[in-house]
C-alpha cells in the first residue's frame, strides 16, 4: 500500500502542479483569482474530445488544438473582463465566475449535460514496483513535468520571463523600468490558458468529461495557491505535492469521497495560521 500511495501520489501531484502553476501565474502577476480558470480546464477537455473523438483527428494535432483554444480563451478573458475591472479584484473574480457558469451552459448546449468518457492518450497499463498504473497517467505526469521545467527555464532565463517575474514582484517598479504590465498580463493569461487546457485534457482522460468538471480542479488550484503562497512556482509545486499526496492517502486509507474535505480543511487552516502561505513572499 505504501508504494501505491507513493506512486499514485507522485503522479497526481505532477498534474496538480500543472494545474496550479497555470492558475498561480495570473494571481502573482495581476493579484486576482481567475475563477474562469475552471472553464479553461473544461474547454481543454472538450475541445480535445471534439477533435480527437468526434472529428477523429490524430491525437497530437487535437492536443495542440485544445491548447490553442485555451490560449485564446485566456487572452479573450483578459481583454474583455479583466481590463474592464482592473482596479477591483473582487469584480474580476465575480465576473470570471459568471463567465465560468456561462461557459458551462455553452458546453451543456453543445455536448449535452451527460458525462462523456475520453479515450486515454496512451492506452495500456504499466507495473511500477508492483503497482498497476495506466500509461495515460504516466504520460500526463511526464508531460506536466516537461512543461513545468520549460516554464521554469522560461521565467528565469528569458527576457520575457524576467519581465513577468518583475511585474509579479512590483508592477510599479516594472513600469518605470520600461515594462508594459498590460502586455505582460496578456502573455501571462495566454500561457495560463495553455496550461489550464493541457491540465483539462489530462484530467478528462483521468476521470471523465462532464460540464461540472471544472469546480473541483478550480478549488484544488485555489488551494495550491493559498497553501504555497503567491509568487513562487516552486512553492506551488511543493504545495501541489502536499495536496496530491494528501488526497491519495485519503482516497486509499479513508474514503474517496472525503479527499476534497481535507483539502478544504487545509486551506482554512493555512489561511488562519499562515495567511501568506507556506512559501509566500511577505507583502508590506
Amino acid at each position: 500500500m505504501l508504494s501505491q500511495i507513493l506512486i499514485q501520489g507522485f503522479l497526481l501531484s505532477g498534474l496538480y502542479g500543472l494545474l496550479a502553476v497555470g492558475f498561480t501565474m495570473i494571481f502573482s502577476v495581476g493579484r486576482v483569482l481567475n475563477l474562469a480558470f475552471g472553464a479553461n480546464i473544461m474547454i481543454g477537455g472538450y475541445v480535445y474530445f471534439a477533435l480527437a473523438q468526434e472529428a477523429a483527428l490524430p491525437k497530437l494535432p487535437s492536443f495542440i488544438g485544445a491548447v490553442l483554444a485555451g490560449v485564446a480563451f485566456g487572452v479573450v478573458t483578459y481583454l474583455i473582463l479583466v481590463r474592464r475591472f482592473r482596479d477591483d479584484p473582487i469584480a474580476v473574480e465575480i465576473s470570471t465566475l459568471i463567465l465560468a457558469v456561462v461557459m458551462q451552459a455553452l458546453i451543456v448546449m453543445i455536448f449535452s449535460p451527460a458525462p462523456r468518457s475520453m479515450w486515454p492518450l496512451l492506452p495500456g497499463v504499466a507495473h511500477i514496483y508492483g503497482v498497476a498504473v495506466s500509461l495515460n497517467i504516466v504520460l500526463a505526469t511526464v508531460v506536466s513535468w516537461v512543461v513545468l521545467g520549460g516554464l521554469l527555464v522560461f521565467v528565469h532565463k528569458t527576457h520575457l520571463g524576467r519581465a513577468i517575474r518583475a511585474v509579479s514582484m512590483d508592477p510599479k517598479g516594472a513600469t518605470i523600468s520600461g515594462i508594459d504590465p498590460r502586455q505582460i498580463s496578456l502573455v501571462t493569461w495566454g500561457l495560463s490558458g495553455a496550461l489550464g487546457a493541457m491540465a483539462g485534457v489530462f484530467l478528462a482522460t483521468y476521470t471523465q468529461l462532464d460540464p461540472g468538471m471544472w469546480v473541483f480542479p478550480l478549488i484544488t488550484a485555489v488551494a495550491v495557491v493559498i497553501v504555497g503562497g503567491i509568487g513562487s512556482i516552486i512553492g506551488s509545486l511543493i504545495a501541489a505535492h502536499i495536496i496530491g499526496f494528501m488526497e491519495t492517502i485519503t482516497t486509499t486509507v479513508i474514503a474517496a469521497e472525503l479527499r476534497g474535505v481535507f483539502t478544504m480543511l487545509l486551506i482554512i487552516i493555512v489561511l488562519l495560521v499562515v495567511p501568506k502561505g507556506l512559501f509566500g513572499r511577505e507583502e508590506i
Binding site: 474514503a255 476534497g260 482554512i268 495567511p275
Partner: peptide
C-alpha cells in the same frame, strides 16, 4: 476567518466551507 483575512482570501474560505459541507453531508 474574517478576523484574519479579507478580500479574495475570505471569499475563498467561504467557498471552501461550502464544499466541505457538500462532501460531509454525503459521506
Amino acid at each position: 476567518p474574517a478576523l484574519r483575512t479579507r478580500g479574495t482570501y475570505f471569499a475563498v474560505v467561504t467557498l471552501a466551507f461550502m464544499e466541505v459541507l457538500y462532501h460531509l453531508m454525503q459521506v
